[in-house]
Amino acid sequence: MQLDRTRIAVRERGTMELLDISWHVLRCYGRPLLLTMLLGVLPLLALNHLLLGWLLTGVEFRSTWSLEEAGNVVRYVWNMSLLVFIEAPLASIAATAFLGQAVFLEQPKLRQLLRELLPLAPALAWCHLVVRGVLPAWLLLAMARGSQEYTGWEALLILLAMYAMGLRAFRPYINEIAILERLPLWKSRQAPMTLGRRSALLHNPSGADLLARWLCAALVACLLVLGVYGVCLFLSGVLLNQWRPTPLLLLLALPLSMWFVVGYIGVLRFMSYLDLRIRHEGWEVELRLRAEAARLASRLV
């Protein structure tokens, strides 16, 4: 591994360029990224269906809906959007681990990737399931399951999503720090730097920048979800002559559209993390110097 010969060019980039290059990364690593994303997405897709799919059981898909049916559809779409938003970083864990190795031209096997992620599972579970509110979100929706009216549990889900939004806007790179920098949760003699401390050191100096980037990414994500779901709707109309939402569209195409965009945003987040490290820590300079040191050592040998 030569540290200054990276597969993805390591240099400072603006927000627009980051949005653009993420498409390049998706194109070049399409298959491995799809596989690693599916690892995270498939269990969540099934779980979300268990938690929310029941809302559509009584709905008959005809040209006009009753007020109650329309209410259930809106409730399903709204809760699904909040849930996917909260779960998004959890789903992109394996993809982030893959990208971290792919930068240095490594081609990790899926099994090897999982083996490397296993020791990090407690830290990741703590960060995502507890701190970032995924587990509480599941519990809230489980409590609301079966209720024919909008419940207080679902209202609490909105508050939880707002809390997650705040964390994600100001502490977006927790996945990258936990997976790529491999820092422990708790301080020890061998590892004085903890995950939380490192997160604060990396994120705090650039809060405004991070917020601006997050807002930009959120806007792009919303537009992309609408676009991708719109394509599904269009294809359903053209191929099946179904121009209104059908069970297939709502139960499958809608979550899949959201998860597709989560994949893109995961790549964007990884690229933004590299950019932040370049801007604030001179990561690219460090890589070059370390590569030179390795060359110097080999010359001396």
Binding site: R7, I8, I21, Y29, R31, Q107
Partner: peptide
Amino acid sequence: MQADVAQIDT
């Protein structure tokens, strides 16, 4: 997991 060889850049 295959990938292209050229550096990914804009």
